[in-house]
Design a protein around this nucleic acid. Sequence first.
DNA 1: ACTGTCATGAAAAGATTTTTTCAGTGTGCG
DNA 2: CGCACACTGAAAAAATCTTTTCATGACAGT
Lengths: 290, 290
Amino acid sequence: MTVASKTVSDVIHSHFGVLTRAEKQLAESLLDNYPVSGLGSITTIAENAGVSTPTVVRMVQKLGYKGYPDFQAHLHQEVEATISNPIAKHDRWASNAPGTHILNRFADAIIDNLRQTLTGLDTATFDSVATLLSDRKRNLYFVGGRITGALAEYFFTHMQVIRPNTALLSANSSSWPQYVLNMNPGDLLIIFDIRRYEQELVSLATAAKNSGAEIIIFTDQWASPATKLARHTFRVQIEAPSAWDSSVVTLFIVEALIEAVQNSTWDETKERMKTLEGLFEQTRLFRKLG
Amino acid sequence: MTVASKTVSDVIHSHFGVLTRAEKQLAESLLDNYPVSGLGSITTIAENAGVSTPTVVRMVQKLGYKGYPDFQAHLHQEVEATISNPIAKHDRWASNAPGTHILNRFADAIIDNLRQTLTGLDTATFDSVATLLSDRKRNLYFVGGRITGALAEYFFTHMQVIRPNTALLSANSSSWPQYVLNMNPGDLLIIFDIRRYEQELVSLATAAKNSGAEIIIFTDQWASPATKLARHTFRVQIEAPSAWDSSVVTLFIVEALIEAVQNSTWDETKERMKTLEGLFEQTRLFRKLG
DNA sequence: ACTGTCATGAAAAGATTTTTTCAGTGTGCG
DNA sequence: CGCACACTGAAAAAATCTTTTCATGACAGT
Protein backbone atom coordinates (compact mmCIF):
# COMPACT_ATOMS: atom_id res chain seq x y z
CA MET A 1 0.00 0.00 0.00
CA THR A 2 1.46 3.30 -1.05
CA VAL A 3 -0.50 5.25 1.48
CA ALA A 4 0.05 2.89 4.36
CA SER A 5 3.79 2.61 4.16
CA LYS A 6 4.79 6.14 3.21
CA THR A 7 4.41 9.21 5.31
CA VAL A 8 1.83 11.76 4.34
CA SER A 9 4.65 14.13 3.63
CA ASP A 10 6.17 11.67 1.18
CA VAL A 11 2.88 11.18 -0.55
CA ILE A 12 2.40 14.90 -1.00
CA HIS A 13 5.87 15.30 -2.41
CA SER A 14 5.51 12.46 -4.85
CA HIS A 15 2.23 13.82 -6.15
CA PHE A 16 3.31 17.42 -6.20
CA GLY A 17 3.78 17.46 -9.94
CA VAL A 18 0.21 16.58 -10.74
CA LEU A 19 -1.32 19.09 -8.38
CA THR A 20 -3.12 22.19 -9.66
CA ARG A 21 -2.35 25.71 -8.56
CA ALA A 22 -4.77 25.83 -5.63
CA GLU A 23 -3.76 22.34 -4.60
CA LYS A 24 -0.09 23.26 -4.64
CA GLN A 25 -0.91 26.23 -2.48
CA LEU A 26 -2.67 23.89 -0.08
CA ALA A 27 0.18 21.41 -0.14
CA GLU A 28 2.67 24.16 0.70
CA SER A 29 0.54 25.20 3.60
CA LEU A 30 0.32 21.64 4.85
CA LEU A 31 4.03 21.02 4.53
CA ASP A 32 4.81 24.24 6.26
CA ASN A 33 4.82 23.33 9.94
CA TYR A 34 4.12 19.72 9.12
CA PRO A 35 2.37 17.71 10.48
CA VAL A 36 0.67 19.96 12.99
CA SER A 37 -0.93 22.18 10.39
CA GLY A 38 -3.07 19.25 9.32
CA LEU A 39 -4.49 18.60 12.74
CA GLY A 40 -7.57 20.80 12.52
CA SER A 41 -10.78 20.45 10.55
CA ILE A 42 -10.99 20.67 6.79
CA THR A 43 -12.46 24.13 7.16
CA THR A 44 -9.54 25.32 9.21
CA ILE A 45 -6.83 24.08 6.92
CA ALA A 46 -8.69 25.37 3.88
CA GLU A 47 -8.80 28.78 5.43
CA ASN A 48 -5.16 28.64 6.44
CA ALA A 49 -4.17 27.76 2.91
CA GLY A 50 -6.55 30.28 1.39
CA VAL A 51 -8.40 27.71 -0.67
CA SER A 52 -11.88 26.26 -0.58
CA THR A 53 -12.86 23.09 1.19
CA PRO A 54 -13.68 21.23 -2.01
CA THR A 55 -10.10 21.79 -3.08
CA VAL A 56 -8.93 20.04 0.04
CA VAL A 57 -11.20 17.10 -0.59
CA ARG A 58 -10.14 16.82 -4.20
CA MET A 59 -6.50 16.92 -3.30
CA VAL A 60 -6.54 14.32 -0.58
CA GLN A 61 -8.47 12.03 -2.87
CA LYS A 62 -5.94 12.65 -5.58
CA LEU A 63 -3.25 11.66 -3.10
CA GLY A 64 -4.97 8.34 -2.67
CA TYR A 65 -6.91 8.82 0.54
CA LYS A 66 -10.52 7.89 0.79
CA GLY A 67 -11.53 11.30 2.06
CA TYR A 68 -10.50 13.94 4.50
CA PRO A 69 -11.10 11.81 7.64
CA ASP A 70 -8.93 9.09 6.16
CA PHE A 71 -6.21 11.58 5.37
CA GLN A 72 -6.33 12.96 8.87
CA ALA A 73 -6.23 9.54 10.47
CA HIS A 74 -2.92 8.93 8.72
CA LEU A 75 -1.63 12.23 9.93
CA HIS A 76 -2.63 11.37 13.49
CA GLN A 77 -0.80 8.10 13.31
CA GLU A 78 2.26 9.95 12.21
CA VAL A 79 2.03 12.47 15.00
CA GLU A 80 1.69 9.61 17.42
CA ALA A 81 4.77 7.91 16.06
CA THR A 82 6.69 11.14 16.31
CA ILE A 83 5.97 11.89 19.90
CA SER A 84 5.46 8.45 21.38
CA ASN A 85 8.17 7.87 23.88
CA PRO A 86 11.27 5.75 23.42
CA ILE A 87 10.63 3.74 26.56
CA ALA A 88 7.57 2.25 24.97
CA LYS A 89 9.71 0.27 22.64
CA HIS A 90 9.91 -3.24 23.99
CA ASP A 91 13.13 -4.42 22.49
CA ARG A 92 15.34 -4.47 25.55
CA TRP A 93 15.74 -7.54 27.73
CA ALA A 94 13.98 -9.90 25.38
CA SER A 95 17.20 -11.94 25.26
CA ASN A 96 16.74 -14.69 27.79
CA ALA A 97 13.19 -14.36 29.00
CA PRO A 98 10.45 -15.44 26.66
CA GLY A 99 7.88 -12.78 25.94
CA THR A 100 5.14 -14.25 28.02
CA HIS A 101 7.14 -14.97 31.14
CA ILE A 102 5.78 -13.22 34.17
CA LEU A 103 9.05 -11.36 34.63
CA ASN A 104 8.67 -9.77 31.25
CA ARG A 105 5.08 -8.88 31.66
CA PHE A 106 5.88 -7.37 35.01
CA ALA A 107 8.78 -5.41 33.60
CA ASP A 108 6.59 -3.95 30.88
CA ALA A 109 3.97 -2.98 33.39
CA ILE A 110 6.46 -1.38 35.73
CA ILE A 111 8.11 0.65 33.02
CA ASP A 112 4.71 1.78 31.93
CA ASN A 113 3.77 2.71 35.47
CA LEU A 114 6.99 4.60 35.84
CA ARG A 115 6.47 6.50 32.64
CA GLN A 116 2.91 7.44 33.47
CA THR A 117 3.72 8.39 37.01
CA LEU A 118 6.57 10.61 35.97
CA THR A 119 4.49 12.21 33.27
CA GLY A 120 1.87 13.14 35.80
CA LEU A 121 4.32 14.17 38.47
CA ASP A 122 5.07 17.80 38.93
CA THR A 123 8.73 18.35 39.70
CA ALA A 124 7.73 21.41 41.68
CA THR A 125 5.74 19.16 43.99
CA PHE A 126 8.67 16.82 44.33
CA ASP A 127 11.03 19.68 45.09
CA SER A 128 8.65 21.22 47.60
CA VAL A 129 8.30 17.95 49.44
CA ALA A 130 12.05 17.45 49.42
CA THR A 131 12.46 20.91 50.93
CA LEU A 132 9.87 20.24 53.59
CA LEU A 133 11.49 16.94 54.51
CA SER A 134 14.86 18.63 54.71
CA ASP A 135 13.68 21.08 57.31
CA ARG A 136 15.08 19.66 60.53
CA LYS A 137 12.84 21.78 62.69
CA ARG A 138 9.83 19.88 61.51
CA ASN A 139 9.11 16.53 63.11
CA LEU A 140 8.40 13.77 60.63
CA TYR A 141 5.79 11.10 61.19
CA PHE A 142 5.51 8.15 58.83
CA VAL A 143 2.50 5.88 58.60
CA GLY A 144 1.24 3.25 56.19
CA GLY A 145 -1.52 0.71 55.85
CA ARG A 146 -1.35 -3.04 56.04
CA ILE A 147 0.56 -3.46 52.82
CA THR A 148 2.18 -0.07 52.56
CA GLY A 149 3.49 -0.21 56.09
CA ALA A 150 6.71 -1.65 54.75
CA LEU A 151 7.16 1.38 52.50
CA ALA A 152 6.64 3.72 55.42
CA GLU A 153 9.21 1.75 57.34
CA TYR A 154 11.68 1.89 54.49
CA PHE A 155 11.30 5.63 54.15
CA PHE A 156 11.52 6.09 57.89
CA THR A 157 14.64 3.98 58.27
CA HIS A 158 16.51 6.13 55.80
CA MET A 159 15.26 9.46 57.05
CA GLN A 160 16.15 8.47 60.55
CA VAL A 161 19.75 8.16 59.48
CA ILE A 162 19.72 11.41 57.59
CA ARG A 163 18.05 13.65 60.13
CA PRO A 164 16.69 13.82 63.68
CA ASN A 165 13.08 14.10 64.75
CA THR A 166 11.58 11.24 62.81
CA ALA A 167 9.03 8.73 63.98
CA LEU A 168 7.31 5.69 62.54
CA LEU A 169 3.72 5.17 63.55
CA SER A 170 2.92 1.53 64.09
CA ALA A 171 0.26 -0.16 62.04
CA ASN A 172 -1.77 -0.41 65.20
CA SER A 173 -3.91 2.69 65.36
CA SER A 174 -4.35 2.61 69.11
CA SER A 175 -1.00 4.32 69.61
CA TRP A 176 -1.71 7.12 67.15
CA PRO A 177 -3.41 9.63 69.47
CA GLN A 178 -0.30 10.14 71.56
CA TYR A 179 1.65 11.04 68.43
CA VAL A 180 -0.99 13.49 67.33
CA LEU A 181 -0.95 14.98 70.78
CA ASN A 182 2.69 15.89 70.33
CA MET A 183 2.43 17.28 66.84
CA ASN A 184 3.38 20.91 66.38
CA PRO A 185 2.32 23.24 63.61
CA GLY A 186 4.63 22.65 60.66
CA ASP A 187 5.28 19.01 61.46
CA LEU A 188 4.90 16.60 58.59
CA LEU A 189 2.76 13.50 58.43
CA ILE A 190 3.73 11.25 55.55
CA ILE A 191 0.94 8.84 54.70
CA PHE A 192 0.96 5.84 52.41
CA ASP A 193 -2.57 4.93 51.41
CA ILE A 194 -3.25 2.78 48.41
CA ARG A 195 -6.41 1.14 47.11
CA ARG A 196 -8.41 -0.43 49.94
CA TYR A 197 -8.09 2.98 51.54
CA GLU A 198 -8.13 2.70 55.28
CA GLN A 199 -10.70 4.86 56.95
CA GLU A 200 -8.56 5.22 60.02
CA LEU A 201 -5.94 7.06 58.03
CA VAL A 202 -8.46 9.75 57.17
CA SER A 203 -9.24 10.18 60.84
CA LEU A 204 -5.54 10.37 61.60
CA ALA A 205 -4.98 12.90 58.85
CA THR A 206 -7.85 15.03 60.08
CA ALA A 207 -6.56 15.02 63.63
CA ALA A 208 -3.03 15.78 62.50
CA LYS A 209 -4.21 18.62 60.34
CA ASN A 210 -6.11 20.10 63.24
CA SER A 211 -2.86 20.07 65.17
CA GLY A 212 -1.34 22.16 62.40
CA ALA A 213 0.67 19.39 60.79
CA GLU A 214 1.14 19.33 57.04
CA ILE A 215 0.23 16.15 55.22
CA ILE A 216 2.01 14.42 52.39
CA ILE A 217 0.31 11.48 50.77
CA PHE A 218 1.48 8.67 48.54
CA THR A 219 -1.58 7.22 46.89
CA ASP A 220 -2.67 5.59 43.66
CA GLN A 221 -4.30 6.91 40.52
CA TRP A 222 -7.71 6.74 42.13
CA ALA A 223 -6.62 8.88 45.04
CA SER A 224 -7.18 8.14 48.70
CA PRO A 225 -9.98 10.11 50.37
CA ALA A 226 -7.32 11.58 52.64
CA THR A 227 -5.94 13.40 49.62
CA LYS A 228 -8.29 16.29 50.28
CA LEU A 229 -6.43 17.03 53.47
CA ALA A 230 -2.96 16.86 51.96
CA ARG A 231 -0.60 19.67 51.19
CA HIS A 232 1.19 17.52 48.64
CA THR A 233 0.10 14.36 46.90
CA PHE A 234 2.02 11.77 44.91
CA ARG A 235 -0.29 9.87 42.64
CA VAL A 236 1.50 6.72 41.67
CA GLN A 237 0.55 4.27 38.97
CA ILE A 238 0.30 0.90 40.69
CA GLU A 239 -1.14 -1.49 38.18
CA ALA A 240 0.58 -4.80 37.66
CA PRO A 241 -0.37 -8.01 35.85
CA SER A 242 -1.19 -9.44 39.24
CA ALA A 243 -3.92 -9.74 41.81
CA TRP A 244 -1.82 -7.33 43.84
CA ASP A 245 -0.88 -3.77 43.29
CA SER A 246 2.70 -2.83 42.61
CA SER A 247 4.65 -0.69 45.05
CA VAL A 248 7.71 -0.49 42.86
CA VAL A 249 7.11 3.00 41.55
CA THR A 250 6.14 4.26 44.98
CA LEU A 251 9.45 2.97 46.29
CA PHE A 252 11.14 4.67 43.38
CA ILE A 253 9.78 8.05 44.42
CA VAL A 254 10.65 7.39 48.02
CA GLU A 255 14.23 6.66 47.09
CA ALA A 256 14.45 9.73 44.91
CA LEU A 257 13.16 11.81 47.80
CA ILE A 258 15.67 10.26 50.16
CA GLU A 259 18.45 11.23 47.82
CA ALA A 260 17.07 14.74 47.30
CA VAL A 261 16.87 15.34 51.04
CA GLN A 262 20.23 13.83 51.72
CA ASN A 263 21.75 15.86 48.96
CA SER A 264 20.33 19.16 50.14
CA THR A 265 22.05 18.88 53.48
CA TRP A 266 24.94 16.60 52.80
CA ASP A 267 27.35 18.15 55.27
CA GLU A 268 25.13 17.65 58.27
CA THR A 269 24.15 14.21 57.08
CA LYS A 270 27.73 13.13 56.62
CA GLU A 271 28.51 13.84 60.24
CA ARG A 272 25.46 11.93 61.38
CA MET A 273 26.34 8.94 59.29
CA LYS A 274 29.86 8.81 60.62
CA THR A 275 28.61 8.89 64.18
CA LEU A 276 26.06 6.23 63.39
CA GLU A 277 28.71 4.08 61.79
CA GLY A 278 30.67 4.27 65.04
CA LEU A 279 27.66 3.32 67.07
CA PHE A 280 26.98 0.26 64.97
CA GLU A 281 30.58 -0.76 65.39
CA GLN A 282 30.25 -0.52 69.13
CA THR A 283 27.04 -2.53 69.12
CA ARG A 284 28.78 -5.26 67.23
CA LEU A 285 31.58 -5.24 69.78
CA PHE A 286 29.10 -5.43 72.62
CA ARG A 287 27.67 -8.54 71.12
CA LYS A 288 31.00 -10.19 70.58
CA LEU A 289 32.07 -9.49 74.11
CA GLY A 290 28.71 -10.24 75.60
CA MET B 1 -5.64 32.50 32.47
CA THR B 2 -5.24 29.18 34.22
CA VAL B 3 -6.04 27.22 31.14
CA ALA B 4 -3.81 29.14 28.83
CA SER B 5 -0.62 28.88 30.81
CA LYS B 6 -0.80 25.27 32.00
CA THR B 7 -0.64 22.19 29.88
CA VAL B 8 -3.78 20.17 29.46
CA SER B 9 -2.07 17.42 31.38
CA ASP B 10 -1.47 19.75 34.29
CA VAL B 11 -5.04 20.90 34.23
CA ILE B 12 -6.30 17.33 34.31
CA HIS B 13 -4.05 16.47 37.21
CA SER B 14 -4.96 19.49 39.21
CA HIS B 15 -8.64 18.78 38.78
CA PHE B 16 -8.35 15.06 39.28
CA GLY B 17 -9.65 15.20 42.80
CA VAL B 18 -12.96 16.69 41.82
CA LEU B 19 -13.61 14.32 38.95
CA THR B 20 -16.28 11.66 39.16
CA ARG B 21 -15.75 7.99 38.46
CA ALA B 22 -16.50 8.09 34.74
CA GLU B 23 -14.54 11.29 34.41
CA LYS B 24 -11.52 9.79 36.13
CA GLN B 25 -11.77 6.86 33.77
CA LEU B 26 -11.75 9.28 30.90
CA ALA B 27 -8.88 11.26 32.35
CA GLU B 28 -6.84 8.08 32.71
CA SER B 29 -7.53 7.20 29.12
CA LEU B 30 -6.52 10.65 28.00
CA LEU B 31 -3.35 10.65 30.06
CA ASP B 32 -2.45 7.23 28.84
CA ASN B 33 -0.52 7.87 25.69
CA TYR B 34 -0.92 11.58 26.15
CA PRO B 35 -1.44 13.73 24.20
CA VAL B 36 -2.07 11.64 21.13
CA SER B 37 -5.10 9.92 22.62
CA GLY B 38 -6.90 13.25 22.60
CA LEU B 39 -6.38 13.93 18.93
CA GLY B 40 -9.51 12.27 17.61
CA SER B 41 -13.14 13.30 17.78
CA ILE B 42 -15.14 13.38 20.95
CA THR B 43 -16.85 10.21 19.84
CA THR B 44 -13.57 8.39 19.43
CA ILE B 45 -12.10 9.32 22.74
CA ALA B 46 -15.35 8.58 24.52
CA GLU B 47 -15.31 5.12 23.03
CA ASN B 48 -11.68 4.56 23.88
CA ALA B 49 -12.33 5.51 27.47
CA GLY B 50 -15.53 3.53 27.65
CA VAL B 51 -17.66 6.49 28.63
CA SER B 52 -20.39 8.47 26.91
CA THR B 53 -19.82 11.64 24.94
CA PRO B 54 -21.74 13.78 27.41
CA THR B 55 -19.22 12.74 30.03
CA VAL B 56 -16.46 14.08 27.85
CA VAL B 57 -18.21 17.39 27.39
CA ARG B 58 -18.93 17.69 31.09
CA MET B 59 -15.36 16.96 32.02
CA VAL B 60 -13.68 19.38 29.65
CA GLN B 61 -16.07 22.08 30.81
CA LYS B 62 -15.24 21.20 34.39
CA LEU B 63 -11.59 21.57 33.49
CA GLY B 64 -12.32 25.10 32.36
CA TYR B 65 -12.56 24.74 28.61
CA LYS B 66 -15.41 26.24 26.68
CA GLY B 67 -16.26 22.96 25.02
CA TYR B 68 -14.65 20.05 23.32
CA PRO B 69 -13.32 22.03 20.34
CA ASP B 70 -11.70 24.47 22.72
CA PHE B 71 -10.17 21.62 24.68
CA GLN B 72 -8.86 20.04 21.53
CA ALA B 73 -7.44 23.30 20.28
CA HIS B 74 -5.31 23.49 23.41
CA LEU B 75 -4.19 19.95 22.90
CA HIS B 76 -3.24 20.74 19.32
CA GLN B 77 -1.22 23.69 20.43
CA GLU B 78 0.59 21.46 22.85
CA VAL B 79 1.30 18.85 20.26
CA GLU B 80 2.63 21.57 18.07
CA ALA B 81 4.90 22.83 20.81
CA THR B 82 6.11 19.34 21.50
CA ILE B 83 6.85 18.45 17.94
CA SER B 84 8.46 21.65 16.91
CA ASN B 85 10.76 21.55 19.92
CA PRO B 86 13.52 19.07 19.12
CA ILE B 87 14.61 18.65 22.72
CA ALA B 88 11.16 17.80 23.90
CA LYS B 89 10.87 15.39 21.02
CA HIS B 90 13.79 13.45 22.37
CA ASP B 91 12.23 12.41 25.61
CA ARG B 92 8.60 13.24 25.79
CA TRP B 93 7.80 11.20 28.87
CA ALA B 94 10.16 13.23 30.97
CA SER B 95 9.36 16.48 29.32
CA ASN B 96 8.10 18.17 32.44
CA ALA B 97 11.21 17.28 34.37
CA PRO B 98 14.34 18.97 33.17
CA GLY B 99 17.02 16.58 32.00
CA THR B 100 19.15 16.80 35.06
CA HIS B 101 16.40 16.57 37.59
CA ILE B 102 17.00 13.84 40.10
CA LEU B 103 13.79 12.08 39.14
CA ASN B 104 15.08 11.66 35.65
CA ARG B 105 18.49 10.50 36.67
CA PHE B 106 16.93 8.03 39.04
CA ALA B 107 14.57 6.74 36.39
CA ASP B 108 17.43 6.16 34.00
CA ALA B 109 19.38 4.32 36.65
CA ILE B 110 16.46 2.14 37.67
CA ILE B 111 15.64 1.15 34.13
CA ASP B 112 19.24 0.29 33.65
CA ASN B 113 19.31 -1.75 36.84
CA LEU B 114 16.18 -3.55 35.77
CA ARG B 115 17.59 -4.38 32.40
CA GLN B 116 20.86 -5.65 33.77
CA THR B 117 19.22 -7.64 36.50
CA LEU B 118 16.82 -9.33 34.12
CA THR B 119 19.59 -10.07 31.69
CA GLY B 120 21.52 -11.84 34.40
CA LEU B 121 18.52 -13.59 35.84
CA ASP B 122 17.76 -17.14 34.90
CA THR B 123 14.03 -17.70 34.49
CA ALA B 124 14.59 -21.27 35.60
CA THR B 125 15.82 -19.98 38.96
CA PHE B 126 12.81 -17.75 39.23
CA ASP B 127 10.45 -20.56 38.41
CA SER B 128 12.14 -22.94 40.84
CA VAL B 129 11.89 -20.44 43.64
CA ALA B 130 8.27 -19.80 42.81
CA THR B 131 7.61 -23.51 42.99
CA LEU B 132 9.40 -23.85 46.32
CA LEU B 133 7.46 -20.92 47.76
CA SER B 134 4.21 -22.43 46.56
CA ASP B 135 4.77 -25.62 48.51
CA ARG B 136 2.54 -25.21 51.54
CA LYS B 137 4.20 -27.99 53.42
CA ARG B 138 7.37 -25.97 53.74
CA ASN B 139 7.54 -23.32 56.42
CA LEU B 140 8.74 -19.95 55.20
CA TYR B 141 11.01 -17.70 57.21
CA PHE B 142 11.78 -14.18 56.05
CA VAL B 143 14.63 -12.08 57.34
CA GLY B 144 16.33 -8.88 56.29
CA GLY B 145 18.99 -6.48 57.47
CA ARG B 146 18.60 -2.98 58.77
CA ILE B 147 17.58 -1.49 55.45
CA THR B 148 16.26 -4.57 53.73
CA GLY B 149 14.06 -5.48 56.67
CA ALA B 150 11.24 -3.55 55.05
CA LEU B 151 11.54 -5.71 51.94
CA ALA B 152 11.39 -8.87 54.02
CA GLU B 153 8.32 -7.49 55.72
CA TYR B 154 6.69 -6.62 52.42
CA PHE B 155 7.29 -10.09 51.05
CA PHE B 156 6.12 -11.69 54.27
CA THR B 157 2.93 -9.65 54.47
CA HIS B 158 1.86 -10.84 51.05
CA MET B 159 2.87 -14.45 51.48
CA GLN B 160 1.06 -14.58 54.75
CA VAL B 161 -2.15 -13.78 52.94
CA ILE B 162 -1.49 -16.29 50.20
CA ARG B 163 -0.46 -19.29 52.26
CA PRO B 164 -0.05 -20.61 55.80
CA ASN B 165 3.17 -21.37 57.64
CA THR B 166 4.99 -18.11 57.15
CA ALA B 167 7.06 -16.20 59.67
CA LEU B 168 8.95 -12.93 59.75
CA LEU B 169 12.14 -12.89 61.78
CA SER B 170 12.58 -9.65 63.61
CA ALA B 171 15.61 -7.49 62.98
CA ASN B 172 16.74 -8.34 66.46
CA SER B 173 18.91 -11.41 66.21
CA SER B 174 18.34 -12.52 69.77
CA SER B 175 15.08 -14.17 68.83
CA TRP B 176 16.52 -16.10 65.89
CA PRO B 177 17.69 -19.27 67.67
CA GLN B 178 14.17 -20.30 68.60
CA TYR B 179 13.11 -20.11 64.95
CA VAL B 180 16.07 -22.19 63.88
CA LEU B 181 15.19 -24.70 66.54
CA ASN B 182 11.82 -25.26 64.90
CA MET B 183 13.03 -25.50 61.32
CA ASN B 184 12.36 -28.76 59.52
CA PRO B 185 14.20 -30.14 56.53
CA GLY B 186 12.71 -28.57 53.42
CA ASP B 187 11.73 -25.33 55.12
CA LEU B 188 12.75 -22.15 53.36
CA LEU B 189 14.73 -19.25 54.74
CA ILE B 190 14.45 -16.18 52.56
CA ILE B 191 17.28 -13.76 53.27
CA PHE B 192 17.72 -10.19 52.11
CA ASP B 193 21.34 -9.15 52.40
CA ILE B 194 22.69 -6.21 50.50
CA ARG B 195 26.02 -4.36 50.67
CA ARG B 196 27.12 -3.82 54.27
CA TYR B 197 26.55 -7.56 54.60
CA GLU B 198 25.57 -8.44 58.10
CA GLN B 199 27.73 -11.10 59.64
CA GLU B 200 24.89 -12.34 61.76
CA LEU B 201 22.97 -13.36 58.68
CA VAL B 202 25.75 -15.74 57.73
CA SER B 203 25.55 -17.34 61.16
CA LEU B 204 21.80 -17.62 60.79
CA ALA B 205 22.10 -19.15 57.35
CA THR B 206 24.64 -21.68 58.57
CA ALA B 207 22.47 -22.73 61.48
CA ALA B 208 19.40 -22.96 59.28
CA LYS B 209 21.19 -25.04 56.73
CA ASN B 210 22.33 -27.42 59.43
CA SER B 211 18.69 -27.87 60.32
CA GLY B 212 18.03 -28.93 56.74
CA ALA B 213 16.40 -25.70 55.62
CA GLU B 214 16.91 -24.42 52.08
CA ILE B 215 18.11 -20.88 51.65
CA ILE B 216 17.07 -18.28 49.12
CA ILE B 217 19.00 -15.04 49.01
CA PHE B 218 18.36 -11.63 47.56
CA THR B 219 21.67 -9.87 47.29
CA ASP B 220 23.52 -7.38 45.13
CA GLN B 221 25.96 -7.75 42.28
CA TRP B 222 28.85 -8.27 44.68
CA ALA B 223 27.05 -11.09 46.46
CA SER B 224 26.65 -11.56 50.18
CA PRO B 225 28.97 -14.09 51.83
CA ALA B 226 25.88 -16.09 52.71
CA THR B 227 25.42 -16.80 49.02
CA LYS B 228 27.63 -19.87 49.32
CA LEU B 229 25.05 -21.50 51.51
CA ALA B 230 22.09 -20.70 49.29
CA ARG B 231 20.15 -23.03 47.06
CA HIS B 232 18.96 -20.09 44.95
CA THR B 233 20.33 -16.58 44.63
CA PHE B 234 18.90 -13.43 43.13
CA ARG B 235 21.66 -11.03 42.28
CA VAL B 236 20.07 -7.65 41.86
CA GLN B 237 21.57 -4.51 40.40
CA ILE B 238 21.22 -1.86 43.08
CA GLU B 239 23.17 1.16 41.94
CA ALA B 240 21.50 4.53 42.05
CA PRO B 241 22.70 8.11 41.64
CA SER B 242 22.58 8.36 45.39
CA ALA B 243 24.53 7.73 48.54
CA TRP B 244 22.10 4.89 49.09
CA ASP B 245 21.47 1.71 47.24
CA SER B 246 18.23 1.20 45.39
CA SER B 247 15.82 -1.51 46.44
CA VAL B 248 13.45 -0.88 43.59
CA VAL B 249 14.52 -3.82 41.46
CA THR B 250 14.60 -6.14 44.44
CA LEU B 251 11.03 -5.18 45.17
CA PHE B 252 10.23 -5.79 41.54
CA ILE B 253 11.40 -9.40 41.78
CA VAL B 254 9.59 -9.88 45.06
CA GLU B 255 6.35 -8.71 43.49
CA ALA B 256 6.83 -10.93 40.49
CA LEU B 257 7.39 -13.89 42.82
CA ILE B 258 4.30 -13.03 44.80
CA GLU B 259 2.26 -13.10 41.63
CA ALA B 260 3.86 -16.32 40.44
CA VAL B 261 3.11 -18.08 43.71
CA GLN B 262 -0.36 -16.71 43.95
CA ASN B 263 -1.05 -17.71 40.40
CA SER B 264 0.14 -21.26 40.81
CA THR B 265 -2.37 -21.97 43.53
CA TRP B 266 -5.10 -19.48 42.87
CA ASP B 267 -7.99 -21.62 44.03
CA GLU B 268 -6.62 -22.15 47.50
CA THR B 269 -5.50 -18.56 47.73
CA LYS B 270 -8.86 -17.25 46.70
CA GLU B 271 -10.52 -19.02 49.60
CA ARG B 272 -7.95 -17.68 52.03
CA MET B 273 -8.38 -14.16 50.79
CA LYS B 274 -12.14 -14.33 51.10
CA THR B 275 -11.87 -15.54 54.68
CA LEU B 276 -9.33 -12.85 55.44
CA GLU B 277 -11.57 -10.22 53.91
CA GLY B 278 -14.28 -11.35 56.31
CA LEU B 279 -11.95 -11.19 59.28
CA PHE B 280 -10.92 -7.64 58.44
CA GLU B 281 -14.54 -6.71 58.18
CA GLN B 282 -15.17 -8.12 61.63
CA THR B 283 -12.21 -6.29 63.07
CA ARG B 284 -13.56 -3.08 61.70
CA LEU B 285 -16.87 -3.85 63.35
CA PHE B 286 -15.19 -4.59 66.65
CA ARG B 287 -13.64 -1.19 66.57
CA LYS B 288 -16.88 0.55 65.77
CA LEU B 289 -18.71 -1.23 68.52
CA GLY B 290 -15.88 -1.05 70.97
C1' DA C 1 -14.94 34.07 -32.06
C1' DC C 2 -16.55 29.55 -30.73
C1' DT C 3 -16.16 25.35 -28.16
C1' DG C 4 -14.62 22.05 -24.94
C1' DT C 5 -11.95 21.18 -20.92
C1' DC C 6 -10.41 22.05 -16.60
C1' DA C 7 -9.95 24.46 -12.16
C1' DT C 8 -12.25 26.66 -8.65
C1' DG C 9 -15.31 28.02 -4.96
C1' DA C 10 -20.30 29.03 -3.45
C1' DA C 11 -23.78 26.73 -1.87
C1' DA C 12 -26.58 22.71 -0.98
C1' DA C 13 -26.82 18.18 0.70
C1' DG C 14 -25.26 14.73 3.54
C1' DA C 15 -22.78 12.97 7.39
C1' DT C 16 -20.83 13.42 11.60
C1' DT C 17 -19.77 15.57 15.71
C1' DT C 18 -20.97 18.27 19.72
C1' DT C 19 -24.16 19.76 23.02
C1' DT C 20 -28.35 19.53 25.56
C1' DT C 21 -32.12 17.27 27.63
C1' DC C 22 -33.90 13.90 30.38
C1' DA C 23 -34.79 9.68 32.73
C1' DG C 24 -32.76 5.80 35.13
C1' DT C 25 -29.51 4.38 38.63
C1' DG C 26 -27.05 4.26 42.59
C1' DT C 27 -25.31 6.20 46.81
C1' DG C 28 -25.15 8.60 51.05
C1' DC C 29 -27.55 10.33 54.83
C1' DG C 30 -31.10 11.31 58.10
C1' DC D 1 -36.20 2.60 55.00
C1' DG D 2 -37.00 6.38 52.14
C1' DC D 3 -35.57 10.73 50.45
C1' DA D 4 -32.47 13.83 48.10
C1' DC D 5 -28.85 14.35 45.32
C1' DA D 6 -25.33 13.50 42.07
C1' DC D 7 -23.76 10.69 38.23
C1' DT D 8 -24.43 8.62 33.97
C1' DG D 9 -25.60 7.49 29.25
C1' DA D 10 -29.45 7.24 25.62
C1' DA D 11 -31.48 9.99 22.61
C1' DA D 12 -32.76 14.32 20.55
C1' DA D 13 -31.33 18.73 19.03
C1' DA D 14 -27.99 21.84 17.46
C1' DA D 15 -23.83 22.84 15.42
C1' DT D 16 -20.25 21.78 12.59
C1' DC D 17 -17.80 19.38 9.32
C1' DT D 18 -17.37 16.85 4.83
C1' DT D 19 -18.76 15.86 0.39
C1' DT D 20 -21.22 16.70 -3.72
C1' DT D 21 -23.26 19.54 -7.05
C1' DC D 22 -23.11 23.09 -9.99
C1' DA D 23 -22.17 27.75 -11.96
C1' DT D 24 -18.48 30.58 -13.30
C1' DG D 25 -14.35 31.85 -15.43
C1' DA D 26 -9.87 30.90 -17.60
C1' DC D 27 -7.56 29.10 -21.25
C1' DA D 28 -6.14 26.25 -25.27
C1' DG D 29 -7.24 24.54 -29.67
C1' DT D 30 -9.95 25.06 -33.74
